[in-house]
């Protein structure tokens, strides 16, 4: 898990430019599934065929980034955010583009730090003229944080743990999944960070009986953190609600029951802001029961996102148990009132 997560975390893949991360993931899973394919939105699908319930598991593989909007005469790059970026977190960061070009983030003269906005920042790639800069970077290119993973105790720090941690769990689950009747569609979704776009179209294509998202969630266990019940290291969460979805009550119960039966520690999660792929999944067509397994993550959307490896292992166990349990849709989600 450790090596896999390191590899996934360090791979480039901002929203809309997921081809590199998709290739890395495809290499990991292609020998364990019946087919893999991609679509117009950049989603990567991996299918394990079966005759039972059609289950979709989504883990978004995109990460936040910075899109170049202008090259000035002296070779500095102006940029805008792809997904949720704080200008304060960006100060002094190193960034990397798809072609490997690197840069650092500088700031205009500023009287008050709390007035910092993205417009006052720029990327410096070491070029001295526009012509030189344009050899490496074009308007529209997207950079991500450039950061190596660090292992600290049983925890890992790095960029894009949101949501390569979820991707790592899903990759492992595919590799280790016991034989099951269920037809499993693992989807490594694109463009989650900019509005759950990949999962919206992939769910429409698959039209599953139910959908599960594997993503990270915020925690409330750091000094003076916002009020939240989730802690790092106490197991994956079973999501109840966030701004994008109220998880199907039966799915929440099922996940809790499976966790208890298998003695997997878990926490309930109510996230007051933010959304996940389940938000798009459950609204597809006539409505698809959806749930979420989240991996607690500190310092989300910074280059120092921290996850706990135990949480990942437990999330993996829970996901595998869920996917291999027989699912009688008509009994579990009755369509008629008794």
């Amino acid at each position: 898990m450790k090596e896999l997560l390191k590899k996934l975390s360090e791979t480039y893949g901002p929203s809309g430019r997921e081809a590199q991360i998709a290739r890395v993931i495809r290499e990991e899973i292609k020998d364990y599934v019946d087919e893999t394919y991609t679509d117009n939105m950049g989603n990567l699908y991996a299918v394990k065929k079966g005759n039972g319930a059609k289950i979709m598991v989504a883990a978004h593989m995109d990460e936040i980034g910075m899109i170049v909007t202008h090259l000035d005469d002296k070779g500095f790059l102006r940029f805008s955010n792809v997904g949720g970026l704080s200008p304060h977190v960006l100060l002094g960061q190193r960034v990397i583009f798809a072609n490997g070009s690197q840069g650092t983030i500088g700031m205009e003269k500023l009287e008050e730090l709390n007035k910092l906005t993205l417009e006052k920042l720029f990327i410096d790639i070491g070029a001295t003229t526009k012509e030189e800069a344009s050899k490496y970077v074009k308007v529209g290119d997207i950079a991500t944080y450039h950061r190596e993973v660090a292992v600290v105790g049983n925890r890992m720090i790095g960029k894009a743990m949101d949501n390569r941690a979820g991707c790592a769990v899903l990759v492992k689950a595919i590799q280790e999944l016991a034989i099951t009747d269920n037809e499993v569609y693992a989807v490594f979704t694109s463009q989650e960070e900019v509005g759950l776009r990949g999962s919206r179209v992939s769910t429409y294509r698959i039209n599953p009986d139910l959908g599960l998202a594997v993503d990270v969630t915020m925690v409330g266990d750091t000094p003076e953190a916002p009020t939240m019940s989730v802690s790092l290291g106490k197991g994956p969460t079973v999501k109840i609600k966030d701004a994008s979805v109220i998880c199907h009550p039966r799915l929440k119960e099922m996940l809790s029951e499976i966790a208890e039966k298998n003695e997997i520690p878990y926490q309930y999660e109510v996230l007051t802001a933010g959304g996940t792929d389940a938000g798009a999944i459950h609204l597809t067509k006539e409505g698809i029961p959806a749930g979420v397994i989240s991996i607690p993550c500190r310092y989300v959307h910074t280059p120092g996102e921290m996850v706990d490896l135990e949480d990942l292992e437990h999330a993996l166990k829970l996901l595998k148990a869920f996917l291999s349990a027989p699912l009688e849709m008509r009994e579990i989600f009755p369509c008629h009132l008794e």
């Binding site: 679509d39 117009n40 899109i67 909007t69 955010n81 308007v139 529209g140 179209v201 429409y204 294509r205």
Partner: peptide, 23 residues
């Protein structure tokens, strides 16, 4: 030229997310 603003939206936003994704 390239449009240098990354906010606001156009019909492409909804079209690209219709059905299983339209280029």
């Amino acid at each position: 030229q390239f449009r240098r603003l990354t906010t606001a939206g156009t019909d492409a936003g909804i079209i690209s997310q219709t059905h299983a994704g339209i280029l």
